[in-house]
Design a protein around this nucleic acid. Structure first.
Length: 424
RNA sequence: GGAGAAUUGGCAGAGUGGUCGAAUGCGGCAGUCUUGAAAACUGUUGAGGGUCACACCUCCGGGGGUUCGAAUCCCUCAUUCUCCGCCA
């Protein structure tokens, strides 16, 4: 959520940023927001004046009662009755205006960073880096869902029976490979200075609002109505919410956390070939990295995160590229996002395996995640996160790119974690 | 799930209807002293709104109510603790 004061003072910047996202009715919504804010403040001021007077009268009444001047007190009491009506009316209006403002603010996405390219869709994303060799596969190379069946390492049908589509069962070496990847990622992340945390897989409403899943992505999360809890779509939600309503010291920066969690996404509206196999699941595993940074250091931190993810992919020897997302493809809460994509050789397409973003103060404002700056003032911190990494598509990439006529080879760095070097 | 107790500032802990945003202690910060540090002493130290800055307003787990006036009384929800039940 943007800060109202920022919108008020930087209207042109906001409009320019929203235009880059192709955000509809931007000017109208921004104007409404500014108006609602003015009305809210005016109402607040009016209410404060009434309350101030009524507070004063109450104190006087107390004094009169103490000194036994009951009659004087009774006269003042009558006066307060009117003020009470007035203040009730005003506080209702204030509540109304505050809600109106809040709802408008929820509609406005983050302002893209300057270097975010304009554009409407993923076609306008810019490839900023590419590495790794796309292997020449042997004749008869298969897409990963065929490989999964051939070697009996992932059973999609079994998952269908137990739960439904998008909830696969990993078996034998497939299960072990999953566990190996999780451990390998966590080890890499902790070595890079990220503290490992284990967090709840369900979150309450306040947390879902804090990181921006609510109110607009309601339909994408599994929801338990009985206890009003949400299954997490990403570890970002519980991990970042560790810092909800927290005021840090400047010396606390940088804060680096990593967590492995399963992720649950309803993926309403997805269909077709692109959701085959591991490409898109309702439940998948992911290791996430989260950073809380001083505002002046957040872009430096974003670079570090990119280098870190690159390092992992280089070690896995997978062909990948990095995209800078365009305005139209940028997530609601993000100011700048880089997507990592691994090449799926048998499908002949790129698969997103990591998304690394700087949210600047957008999440922090909702979370009330602040720090005391050098002048002793509280200031919003910057939050960042990235996948390091999401399992299924990495697995898809590994299976497809490492397949040989003898079986699927295991990348060298994973062999100690797996305890085997080939799936055959 | 049942019964009882509790929830106050970074922490501990007073405060049971009136000038209480809240005693006191610890911690933090600044200073005095010291070659430096410790100790001791002095001062300072919550958040939000509002203002050029003050004034002023709001916040004592969340929400609602009683009252001229609520941290204090009532209702409700949440959480924590103790006992019982169930249980990996």
């Amino acid at each position: 959520m943007l800060q109202v004061a920022f919108i008020r003072e930087n209207k042109e910047t906001v409009l320019k940023g929203l235009a880059k996202r192709n955000f509809k009715n931007a000017e109208e919504i921004v104007n409404q927001t500014i108006l609602a804010d003015e009305q809210r403040r005016a109402t607040q001021t009016e209410l404060d004046a009434v309350l101030a007077e009524s507070n004063k009268l109450s104190k006087d009444i107390g004094i009169f009662f103490k000194s036994g001047e009951r009659e004087k007190a009774e006269i003042l009491k009558l006066k307060t009755a009117q003020l009470k009506d007035k203040s009730k009316e005003l506080s209702e209006k204030l509540q109304e205006k505050a809600t109106e403002l809040q709802n408008l603010l929820y509609l406005i996405p983050n302002i893209p960073n300057e270097i975010v390219p304009a554009g409407n869709s993923d076609e306008d994303n810019i490839t900023v880096f590419e590495a790794g060799k796309i292997p020449a596969l042997y004749d008869g190379a298969l897409p990963h869902w065929e490989l999964a069946k051939k070697y009996d390492i992932i059973d999609f049908e079994l998952g269908n029976k137990i739960t439904g589509a998008g909830f696969p069962v990993y078996k034998g070496k497939g299960a072990r490979l999953q566990r190996a990847l999780i451990n390998y990622f966590l080890d890499k992340n902790t070595k890079a200075g990220y503290q490992e945390v284990q967090v709840p897989y369900m979150v309450n409403e306040a947390s879902a609002y804090g990181t921006g899943q609510l109110p607009d992505k309601e339909g994408q999360m599994y929801h338990d109505a009985q206890d009003n809890l949400y299954l997490i779509p990403t570890a970002e939600v519980p991990v970042t919410n560790i810092f909800r309503d927290v005021i840090l010291k400047e010396s606390d920066f940088p804060i680096c956390k990593t967590a492995y969690t399963p992720c649950f996404r309803r993926e309403a509206g997805s269909y077709g070939a692109h959701v085959r196999g591991l490409n898109r699941l309702h439940q998948f595993d992911k290791v996430e990295i989260v950073r809380i940074e001083h505002p002046t250091k957040s872009y430096e931190a974003l670079e570090k995160m990119l280098e870190h993810v690159k390092d992992i992919l280089n070690e896995l020897k997978l062909p990948y590229r990095i995209l800078r997302l365009c305005g139209g493809d940028l997530g609601f809460t993000s100011a700048l996002t880089y997507d990592f994509e691994v090449f799926s050789t048998a499908q002949n397409r790129w698969l997103e395996i990591s998304s690394v973003s700087n949210f600047e103060t957008f999440q922090a404002n909702r979370l009330k995640l602040r720090f005391k700056n050098a002048n002793g003032k509280t200031e919003l911190a910057h939050t960042l996160n990235g996948s390091s990494l999401a399992l299924p598509r990495v697995l898809a990439g590994l299976l497809e790119n490492y397949q040989t006529s003898e079986g699927i080879k295991i990348p060298e760095v994973l062999i100690p974690y797996c305890g085997f070097d080939i799936i055959n």
